[in-house]
Amino acid sequence: MSLYLKLISGSLRSRMQYKMNFLVSSISYGLIMAVDFVLLAAILQRFNDVKGWNLYEVGLLYGISSVAITLYRVFGVEIHNFERYMVEGDFDSLLIRPVSPLSLLLTKNLDLSRIGGTIQGILILAISIFGLNLKNFELFLLVLYLPISIISGVAICFSLGLLTATIAFWTQRIKDFQTFTLYAPFNAANYPMNIYPSWLKLIFFTVIPVGFMNYTPILFLLDKGGSLWNLALPPAVATIFLFLALRFWQFGIRHYHSTGS
């Protein structure tokens, strides 16, 4: 634990050496996210609802999905930018330590500029909850469940990020894959899954299981269908998926090629 704190504090101090860069990137990223949601709200205002989901209900889905992916971007920044380790051969220096390379990666850097997105996501969640005017019991259940949903979402996002990063052991480059495994699915998860054709739904509930983190539990919590199982599924799916991602990562390390001297 004290090693973890030392590493984290080291990476933070490294970051602080470039203050301007940090400020500019936080502000610009926060702005992009804000514009993004204003657009969504504008569209929803016009159409009132999306296949039976009103603005506040979609806001819940949107908030969970964006908090999950931005938290991953804050803590998993080195996983996300993993191809650098392959292309420049920096992965060597992680493998000479008596600590797992994954923990070294996770402590190497925090991308605090993404925190703006997390805060914005939490704001959207808060606004949506107020806007929904729920009865006491439903409200209680929803607020209680949100952290579980978010943690499951972060785990699913992290697993997807790790699976994609692992591909780099063979292909070196992964930036192109991330569009398909991370950006697009998490964008899609901002909206209710029932708007998608069945083949897409199939993908979002199997190989890229983003549907489980928000749609599945919110469906039940807002009394739109499903059973209590809908609440058990997100953490269960996240755990299994995380386990698989870690196994695949271990398998990938054995195939690490390194670079010439």
Binding site: D92, L95, I96, H255, Y256, S258
Partner: peptide, 8 residues
């Protein structure tokens, strides 16, 4: 790199 466990 093999001796130090980096490569298999």
């Amino acid at each position: 790199k093999m001796l130090s466990g980096i490569l298999h």
